[in-house]
C-alpha cells in the first residue's frame, strides 16, 4: 500500500459578486486529481504558475481545505480532523517552502525556529531540546553556533537548509517540498538537492516535489505528473514523460526548456516553433469544449495521458 493516496481531490474557490455578494461561480484550482506516493519515493508535480500544483501541496499538509475527495494516509481519510489526530498526521507530514526568508520568523532565533515543531509534538527537557536541535543542525551541515543567530544572518542556501532542519525535526514520513530550490543559485541548488536525497536515504522520507523546473524534477523523481488548469495531463515514469511525451502540453513544455548545446540551437528552435504551432492548431483535440483537460487514459502500465482515445496500433479504436 502506498504511503499516501490522493483520490479525486478537488479544491474550488467561490467567486462572490453582485449586490448580495452571492457565490456566482467557482475557480477550479484543483479539479479531480489522483496519485499515490510510495514510501521513500520522490514524486514530482510539474506545472506552470496557476496550474494548481502549490494548492495541491497545501491541501496535503492541511493548509488548504479540500472541497471534495479524499487524502488517504495509511488507508484512512485525513481530510477528516478526527483521523488526523489519531494518525499523528500533522507530525508525520511536513513542508519545505520556496521562499526561505519569508518562511522563517525574523524575530526568532534559529534554535526556536527548529524547536517549534518539537515543542508542539514532544515535551522535552530544555537540555534535551538543545541537544536535538544541535543534532538537526549537524544533519544539515550547519555549525552549532548557528542556533543563537537570526534568519537574516544566513545566505539563501543556508536558510533553505534551516527550513529543511525544521521540516525533519519531527521525523516525518512525507515532506511536501514546494519549489525548494527555485530561488537558489545553481551551485547552491546542487547542494540542497544532494542534501535532500541524503536525508531521504537516511530516514526513508517520501517527498512530494513540486516544481516548474523540468531539469530538476528529472534529476530528483522517478514518477511524476504534469499539471495544468487544475488537472493532470500526463502521469508516468521519468522515461514515459521525458522520452515518450504523448500530450501536446507536455511536448510544448519540454521543447521550451533551453538546452545547453549552442551547436544545435537552430534545430531546437525550429522544433520548438513546430510544437508551438501544433499546440495552437490541435489543442481542441486535447481539451474539452470548455477548455477542461480530458480524463486520463492509460497507454501503458505506468503511463497515463489525457487524450480522447488511446491510439490502438493496427486495429479499430
Amino acid at each position: 500500500m502506498a504511503l499516501i493516496e490522493i483520490r479525486d481531490l478537488k479544491i474550488h474557490y467561490p467567486i462572490r459578486s453582485g449586490f448580495f455578494n452571492r457565490v456566482t461561480d467557482h475557480v477550479l484550482a484543483v479539479d479531480g486529481i489522483n496519485f499515490d506516493i510510495e514510501e521513500g519515493e520522490t514524486y514530482g508535480l510539474i506545472g506552470e504558475s496557476g496550474s494548481g500544483k502549490s494548492t495541491t501541496g497545501k491541501a496535503i499538509v492541511g493548509l488548504e481545505k479540500a472541497t471534495s475527495g479524499q487524502i488517504l494516509y495509511k488507508g484512512e481519510d485525513v481530510t477528516k480532523p478526527r483521523n488526523r489526530k489519531k494518525l499523528q498526521y500533522n507530525r508525520d507530514v511536513q513542508m519545505i517552502f520556496q521562499d526561505s526568508l519569508s518562511s522563517l520568523n525574523p524575530k526568532k532565533r534559529i534554535k526556536d525556529i527548529i524547536a517549534e515543531p518539537i515543542r508542539n509534538f514532544e515535551h522535552l527537557a530544555p537540555a534535551d531540546e538543545t541537544k536535538r536541535v544541535q543534532e538537526l543542525l549537524d544533519i544539515v551541515g550547519m555549525p552549532a553556533d548557528a542556533m543563537y543567530k537570526y534568519p537574516h544572518e544566513f545566505s539563501g542556501g543556508q536558510r533553505q537548509r534551516i527550513g529543511i532542519a525544521r521540516a525533519v525535526s519531527t521525523n516525518p514520513k512525507l515532506i511536501v517540498a514546494d519549489e525548494p530550490v527555485s530561488a537558489l543559485d545553481l551551485s547552491v541548488q546542487a547542494q540542497v538537492l544532494n542534501f535532500m536525497k541524503e536525508i531521504q536515504k537516511e530516514f526513508n522520507i517520501s517527498y512530494l516535489f513540486i516544481s516548474h523546473d523540468l531539469g530538476v524534477v528529472k534529476h530528483m523523481c522517478r514518477n511524476m505528473a504534469i499539471m495544468t488548469r487544475g488537472r493532470f495531463v500526463e502521469v508516468g515514469t521519468r522515461e514515459d514523460i521525458y522520452q515518450h511525451p504523448q500530450h501536446i502540453y507536455t511536448q510544448r513544455l519540454l521543447s521550451a526548456i533551453p538546452k545547453i548545446t549552442p551547436a544545435s540551437r537552430m534545430i531546437d528552435k525550429s522544433n520548438r516553433k513546430r510544437v508551438e504551432a501544433l499546440y495552437q492548431e490541435e489543442s481542441s483535440k486535447y481539451y474539452g469544449p470548455d477548455g477542461k483537460v480530458l480524463d486520463l487514459k492509460q497507454v501503458s502500465p505506468t503511463h497515463s495521458v489525457a487524450i480522447q482515445d488511446p491510439v490502438v496500433e493496427g486495429g479499430q479504436s
Binding site: A190, V216, H219
Partner: peptide
C-alpha cells in the same frame, strides 16, 4: 559551452541537473 576553461565555468556547467546521471549526486562547488 563546448570548451570551457576556467574552473568556475567548468564547475558551474557540471553542477547543472541537466545531465542524465540521475542516481549520482550533483556536483557541488
Amino acid at each position: 559551452f563546448e570548451h570551457p576553461l576556467h574552473p568556475y565555468t567548468r564547475s558551474l556547467l557540471r553542477s547543472m541537473p541537466q545531465a542524465d546521471n540521475d542516481s549520482d549526486d550533483l556536483y557541488v562547488i
